[in-house]
Write a protein that binds this DNA or RNA. Structure first.
Lengths: 137, 137
DNA sequence: ACAATATCTCTAGTGGCTGGAAGTCTAAGG
DNA sequence: CCTTAGACTTCCAGCCACTAGAGATATTGT
């Protein structure tokens, strides 16, 4: 049995964040000490690691809730879990594609600066005039 | 002179967002009609396009405020504008790199699903066990 | 003149935390 | 056993960049 601070140190999840996950229903309400402090065991540690991992992969709290619900029903087909992961993959790929377009545009804008004054600054001119852009965004 | 709705249609920026930009000080307080409705001209249209463009490129409101301040001082050197653009480029590149690591991890997780039940679902197992990950995150 | 649409201000909500205040509990040292 | 430092509790506010809604007023078209 360890305290919320211990759990935090073991998982790298900040204390207020752990309480937040509990409030959001990702962690079940923890047992309490006589003095009303939370006490966690191995099970909670593992679940928190799961949550942290999923968050690191960009899954929303809502998706994680779904996955936790699913994992409680070992007999169901795992199509839903699969769908959540695939949707997340698709959304990550979308964001990468979008950021690459931005990168191109910013390169054009930022790398052309010739170090003169604001009056003829390429950065500001480029931002003022969308027509100078190579891609649409 | 056009109304906020006209401005919205011309720039693709939603009406409440225009009011929000005014509130944030990116747009100067607009002239008003007799009945207290905002009236905009070409100047405001151009500035809003500038703002929209910068936002599309991922610049924060704060950075845009800086750029607007700068653009009012045509005689100053444009190093600051250049720095803002370069910082944004660096941050975009960071995010791309991070998302690519995620993409790899999600591919491994999502594409291995063999369509069985939750009990032996690869997605859920992978999320439960960080040790299965190829990269650190 | 009237109806339909647009605008006004103000407030609150989004997601995923993060920080602070004010009070209570626990663990270690003396 | 007592003290004290630190960890813990709850509750509330704030972050960013909007977005939505209520209820009142203005404008526009017929």
């Amino acid at each position: 049995m360890f305290s919320i601070g211990d759990l935090s140190r073991r998982t790298g999840v900040k204390v207020p964040t752990i309480r937040y996950y509990e409030q959001m229903g990702l962690l079940e309400a923890a047992e309490r000490s006589e003095g009303n402090q939370r006490r966690f065991g191995k099970r909670e540690l593992e679940r928190l690691a799961f949550i942290r991992h999923a968050r690191d992969l960009g899954l929303t709290i809502e998706s994680i809730r779904e996955l936790i619900d699913l994992s409680g029903h070992a007999e169901k087909p795992c199509a839903d879990a699969d769908r959540i992961a695939k949707e997340q993959l698709a959304s990550v790929r979308d964001r990468i594609a979008q950021l690459k377009r931005l990168e191109k545009e910013l390169e054009r804008i930022a790398l052309c600066c010739t170090g003169e004054t604001v009056g003829d600054c390429h950065v500001i001119r480029a931002l003022s005039n969308h027509a100078l852009c190579a891609t649409d965004h």
